[in-house]
Design a protein around this nucleic acid. Structure first.
Lengths: 192, 192
DNA sequence: GAGGAAAATCCAAAATACCGGATTTCTGTT
DNA sequence: AACAGAAATCCGGTATTTTGGATTTTCCTC
């Protein structure tokens, strides 16, 4: 798959992989199960769900049959929820065991994975979060709420204090760490 | 493209080619023009429109942008018109200069081209309509309204009188002609 | 009908989707 | 921790899509 620039127009396409994966998981099906149901191989289903290959409409059609999702609807843009969506503090999903001395709160809905992910990250003193490279074109937008933070992206390093914001490409290894005392940051990951 | 049997489920897919071609022609665009607009090669557009290849969704997406058609809508089944559709006699599109001594009235809507075309054909005495082979699997269903008609499909020949009906494959050259005096026939072309 | 320009199709090379088995990752159990 | 079983990813080879240019067809104009 040629890695197309993600202009606003192509956003529907880049949304498709996560939608398929979500649909499958919601039904509690394994890749293997879907493969048998649809006649599409495990590997293909996996690649498609990871956005590593652009299926032919014939293949996609077979998948929609197996997953019992609406073909037309799959390609439609997200319909913004009508009213105000509220995610209460107490209900925020939490990743406790990422990195060392840090906990990650997931603020964006599963549908948005891969497009626009929002996290609230809390570091203990000297807490550190190491991340593997995401796919080319992905960027992170980070704002410090409190504390002092050190950002390392590739071979570049920056120090940030409260209120500071950094944006950087993450198609390379990158690290966020609290420097003197605990810290809290807001992180937006684009096009991961 | 693996030639999938056209079970009811796959019919949406087989509808896509003609829809694309119709959309392009309605805009008065050439293959070349669409190619330049969409970034998809002439050849590909041609193959897709003829149903000879199953495009990837990326390719199809680019085409829909160029043709300004709704991606989602393209794959949806035809929604049967709500009430009763009436096509008045006076408004029936006419092909006057096909064959010799015959005129063709087109009774089916443009959307249906390639699936299910209906014609009312009038022959003068000794009128004749010669047709090139359609694609494999295509069949014609012909009923004689009045007069006497001679059908030739490949190397088979049949004579039909008023009320007679013939069905025959048309993936081969075929000819319809009026034998003694004028004639009128009803013709349904399937999967052309 | 002959000639010429535009449009559609054909063709061989390149890129990419697709498959099935091997490998790795994940998850829960002793 | 180590293991077992399941699930997902990786990796070859094959089939299909995709492309750019050559060829054929269509359709005007003279």
């Amino acid at each position: 798959m040629t890695d197309e620039a993600s202009t606003p127009e192509t956003e529907v396409l880049s949304l498709l992989p996560s939608r398929l994966r979500t649909a499958r998981r919601d039904k509690g099906l394994s890749l293997d199960a879907v493969a048998k149901l649809s006649g599409v191989s495990r590997s293909m289903v996996s690649q498609i769900e990871r956005g590593e290959s652009s299926p032919t409409i014939a293949t996609l059609w077979n998948l929609t049959r197996a997953l019992q999702v609406d073909f037309a609807g799959l390609l439609e843009g997200v319909d913004e929820p009508a009213g105000i969506e509220v995610l209460r503090n107490a209900n925020v999903p939490l990743i406790a065991n990422a990195g060392q001395g840090c906990s990650i709160r997931i603020l964006s809905p599963p549908e948005e994975v891969g497009r626009h992910e929002v996290y609230d990250i809390r570091f203990q003193d000297s807490g550190i979060l190491d991340s593997a490279p995401h796919k080319r074109g992905a960027r992170e937008h980070l704002t410090v709420i409190s504390g002092n933070v050190r950002i390392k992206a590739g071979d570049k390093v920056e120090m940030l204090g409260p209120g500071d914001t950094a944006r950087y490409p993450v198609d390379q290894p990158h690290t966020i760490s609290a420097e003197a005392g605990p810290a809290q940051v807001f992180l937006v990951v684009q096009d991961a």
